[in-house]
C-alpha cells in the first residue's frame, strides 16, 4: 500500500462518483456502528438502554458503568471489576511479546545469514506451526503445564504464547533479514565481529521497522487470545478477554448492558490504541502474515 501513483481510476461522470462515495460511506457506517453503539450506551444508565433507542446519544450522561466495569462489577463470583484481569493480561502480554520477538529476531538472523544444512527444515517446521488449530495442543499442553507446575499461572500462559508465537515472529524477521545485504555481515566478519556482535552492532540497529511490526502483531494476538486463557488460566492469571466473557455471559442477576459495553471497550482499548497510533505497521504485519515465503 505504498502510495505509488497508480492510475487505475475509472473515468466516470459525477453520478458515478456520487455512487462510489455513497457506497464507501455506507460501509463506513457499517464498520463504525457497533463501536458507536457500544460507546454511547456505555454512557447511559441501564433504564435508558432498556427503554430506548440504541442509536440515540445519552440523555443522562454517566460514567458509572465504566467505574463498575473497571473496579467493582461481578466477574465470576467476585465483585472485582476488570482491573485485576487487565493487570493479568499486561503481565502475560509483555514478557510473551518480548521473548517471542527476541527469539524470532535471532532465528531470522540465523536462518538468513548463518543457514546450515537442515536450517530450511527448521524454518518449514516453524512456519507450518503458525497455522495449526490450537485445539490440537490443548490436551497435552494442559498436562505439561501441570507437570511443570505452571498450571493456572501467568508464567504458564507466557510460555504458551511464546511458543505458539515463534512461528510468526521468526517468519517476519526471516523475510526482513533476507533482504538485508549479506555483504554487510561478511564485512563485519572480516572486521573481526563475532556472531552476536554482528547481530547487535549491524543488524539490530536496522531492525526497528520489523521489530515494530512484530511487536504489534504479537501484542494484538496475545492480548486478544481467548482459547488459551480460558483453557489454562486460574483466577490469578485470567486474562482480560476471558474476564470480559465471564462478565457478559454470567447467568446471574440483571444484565447490565452498559457495564458490558464499558468492559468490552476496556478490553479493546490497548489494541485499538496501538492500531490508532501505528496502524501502518499493524497492516504491514497482517500482510506479512498473509503472504509468506
Amino acid at each position: 500500500m505504498s502510495g505509488a501513483t497508480q492510475d487505475n481510476a475509472l473515468k466516470g461522470s459525477g453520478a458515478t462518483r456520487i455512487i462510489i462515495y455513497t457506497v464507501l460511506i455506507l460501509f463506513m457506517i457499517f464498520y463504525l456502528l457497533p463501536l458507536y453503539v457500544m460507546l454511547t450506551n456505555s454512557l447511559k444508565p441501564l433504564e435508558e438502554i432498556r427503554g430506548g433507542d440504541m442509536l440515540a446519544l445519552p440523555k443522562n450522561w454517566t460514567i458509572e458503568p465504566w467505574r463498575a466495569a473497571w473496579s467493582y462489577a461481578q466477574i465470576g463470583v467476585q465483585p472485582t471489576g476488570l482491573k485485576p484481569y487487565f493487570i493479568n493480561s499486561i503481565f502475560m502480554v509483555v514478557p510473551a511479546v518480548l521473548i517471542s520477538t527476541s527469539l524470532g529476531a535471532l532465528n531470522g538472523y540465523v536462518l538468513t545469514k548463518w543457514s546450515f544444512r537442515g536450517s530450511d527444515l527448521v524454518f518449514g517446521l516453524l512456519l507450518l506451526a503458525c497455522f495449526i488449530p490450537f485445539q490440537i495442543v490443548l490436551i497435552p499442553m494442559a498436562r505439561i503445564l501441570g507437570i511443570l507446575g505452571l498450571a493456572g499461572t501467568t508464567s504458564g500462559l507466557v510460555l504458551v504464547h511464546t511458543i505458539y508465537g515463534l512461528g510468526f515472529t521468526t517468519l517476519f524477521f526471516r523475510n526482513y533479514y533476507a533482504a538485508f545485504p549479506t555483504e554487510l555481515v561478511r564485512a563485519a566478519q572480516i572486521d573481526g565481529a563475532g556472531f552476536f556482535q554482528i547481530f547487535w552492532r549491524i543488524l539490530a540497529p536496522s531492525s526497528a521497522p520489523i521489530a515494530v511490526v512484530t511487536i504489534i502483531w504479537q501484542f494484538t494476538n496475545v492480548w486478544n487470545d481467548f482459547l488459551f486463557g480460558v483453557s489454562f488460566a486460574d483466577f490469578d492469571s485470567i486474562p482480560m478477554t476471558v474476564a470480559l466473557n465471564n462478565l457478559v455471559n454470567s447467568s446471574t442477576g440483571v444484565k447490565e448492558y452498559n457495564v458490558h459495553f464499558a468492559g468490552a471497550i476496556l478490553a479493546a482499548l490497548p489494541t485499538l490504541i496501538v492500531y490508532i497510533v501505528s496502524g501502518r505497521y499493524f497492516v504491514r504485519g497482517l500482510m506479512a502474515g498473509a503472504v509468506k515465503g
Partner: peptide, 26 residues
C-alpha cells in the same frame, strides 16, 4: 483505517457488541 480497525479487536469484543446489537429485545 475505519474499514480495517475491527481486525484489531478481540473476537470476544466483536461478539459482545454484535450479540447485543442483534438481540431483538434490546
Amino acid at each position: 483505517p475505519i474499514y480495517l480497525y475491527p481486525m484489531a479487536l478481540s473476537f470476544i469484543v466483536t461478539g459482545t457488541a454484535w450479540k447485543w446489537f442483534l438481540d431483538p429485545g434490546i
